[in-house]
Write a protein that binds this DNA or RNA. Structure first.
Lengths: 163, 163
DNA sequence: CAGAATCCCTGCGGATACTG
DNA sequence: CAGTATCCGCAGGGATTCTG
């Protein structure tokens, strides 16, 4: 799947740099346009969808839940919490609801007692996980670099604005 | 998307489900393990790196800056702000500093007056952009689905906890 | 021009208690 | 079991002001 776009090294930057994107002059609020490796430039709409997807993914728990579901297929509420580890019920509920609304997971309620609810990735959710797979490959490939960078990160910079 | 995760069009979920990941029983704080498409399972370290990378990317501005830099190659501070659009100097500075510390961009100061600082993606930064390319492809491929889902999102759910 | 410093407000997210 | 409801701390991030 990494070979979806021929050689995944940095042809994106290359293609994007070569092309002349429709860069709006900072008028209607960040109109960034990315470039697909196969030549076609993405529309602002797609660009926005990507941003939304990424923003959603990165809310600290979504990715973990997605991973857990990708691994185990179908899971109950509590089980997901266990597998993820350290997540509060509040956040687990919110995350799952969000995922459900976004069409990434299905929620099936069994009218039993005690109640039983099962979650499972949709096709869309699975495909998203697959899409993010290349990021894993990237991390793998640049593992040593990342490690050394993280190690040599000057501590003075870290406690700048945040602290 | 019925019930099988075996035919889920992506090998990630399939491979991950097949393998038996080292899932810590919610002890040392979420030990999620992802599965690479080529069979090798990622280590918790790589997994963590991915999480960090994604978390960083999604901080609302990083991705935009990354895109802009990927498109234009080398840019000055103010120019980046213009191209991104709507970002405050404070956030732009923070974002660029973070990106620099992470080894994704280089920062070159020219001792002139008025001062001039140029930013540019490193190899690592470019490769990260390339890695995220598949997410764009995903958004492209599932564009119509995402659109309809976004449209049919029940408004009652949206104004739950957040509002 | 490229930032650093300060103020302040919003919302994420943890902890806890209650319910069907 | 699978949530919902409430309180609350704290970091993210915008607006503004000052400086080398």
């Amino acid at each position: 799947m990494a070979d979806t776009n021929t050689t995944v090294s940095n042809d994106v930057a290359a293609a994007a740099t070569a092309a002349t994107p429709t860069q709006a002059p900072a008028a209607s609020g960040r109109r960034v346009v990315f470039q697909s490796p196969h030549g076609a430039s993405s529309t602002p709409e797609i660009d926005d969808m990507v941003m939304q997807a990424i923003a959603r993914i990165a809310d600290k728990w979504t990715m973990c839940v997605l991973e857990v579901l990708a691994q185990n297929g179908v899971l109950r509420f509590t089980r997901i919490g266990e597998l993820v580890g350290g997540i509060s019920q509040r956040m687990l509920t919110k995350t799952l609801r969000q995922l459900e609304d976004d069409g990434f997971v299905t929620r099936t309620v069994y009218p039993e007692v005690p109640p039983r609810v099962e979650y499972q990735l949709t096709e869309l959710g699975s495909s998203l996980c697959a899409a993010f797979c290349s990021v894993w490959l990237w991390a793998e490939a640049h593992c040593s670099e990342l490690r050394s960078i993280k190690a040599s990160r000057r501590p003075t910079r870290a406690a700048k604005d945040g602290a």
